[in-house]
Amino acid sequence: MTAAARISTAPLMVPSPFPTALNGGELAVCTTALTKYYGWHPALKNVGLQVPVGSVYLLVGPNGAGKSTTIKILLDMVRPSGGAAHVFDMNSQRHAAVVRANVGYVPEQLNWGYGWMKVGRLLEHHSRYFPNWDDSYAKHLADAFELRLDRKLKTLSKGQGRRVHLAMALAHRPPLLVLDEPTDGLDPVMRDDTMRVLIDHLAETPTTVLLSTHHVSEVETLADHIGVIRNGELCAQMPIERLRRGLLRYRADVPDGWQGASLFGDAVLRRNTTRNEIEWTVWGEEAQIAGELAMSGATVRDATPISLHDATLALLTPKRAVR
């Protein structure tokens, strides 16, 4: 059976209650109905990723949700079963080489081969493939990441290997950085240093970043867009500012015997209810929610934005959030 046939027999998906498309603007990455099957297992289902030019786009999701598969499709390492991916308006499969020339990629898995090569020689080797390689910047990055150029790649720890890949990804100053768990395996100090290098890089070089990480709090100040992928589906995609406006924590006093527990249904992503107080994380328009709470007899004390980390946790709750 072909992939197309498999897709047509798949059950209809319930539309996400969250925004899944951005409004206008030039896109660095755009995927359309991207679908990928591994055997019979659907790894991606109609994913429509939209990464605006110049943005820092945070792609989050649990392990195995399809983040790395999406990224590999962008670089033509994995071929989609359906749909298409475009990077800077170029089809990622038809123009794979040019796409890769414009991407600095840090992979999640570091088992890449070339383990016999010394780090210094690997950087030199890499530089030959990227005409825009900046030698002095590469030296600066090697210092910043404390790379040991005389060591063979296969002798490096996970964190050291990650830093080598970060240096290779940044040193040719690509228009698009695709970072798949870039701080995984790094100790806290090096993680902090890495984020600082990345911030400096973005300040100096106009770059779009597609970043997949589990350490959301690290990129709280950096990211301006978010995409949430779960079970191969893109269930939310929006500017972070829109997330902060739409996903609020409401604290309210409620009278004894309050009957509003079922309000908003699954739009309540987090519930913390005591006898006379509720603390709910709810997606929706603030005025409307506050109004409905008031009508139910609750007295809203405050509605506060939550951290990106908490918002991500709320969005990744396995429970389907349908309003």
Partner: peptide, 11 residues
């Protein structure tokens, strides 16, 4: 067409 200045592939 993108407005981004793109890099070339190696020769």
């Amino acid at each position: 067409m993108t407005s981004v200045s793109l890099h070339a592939s190696p020769r």
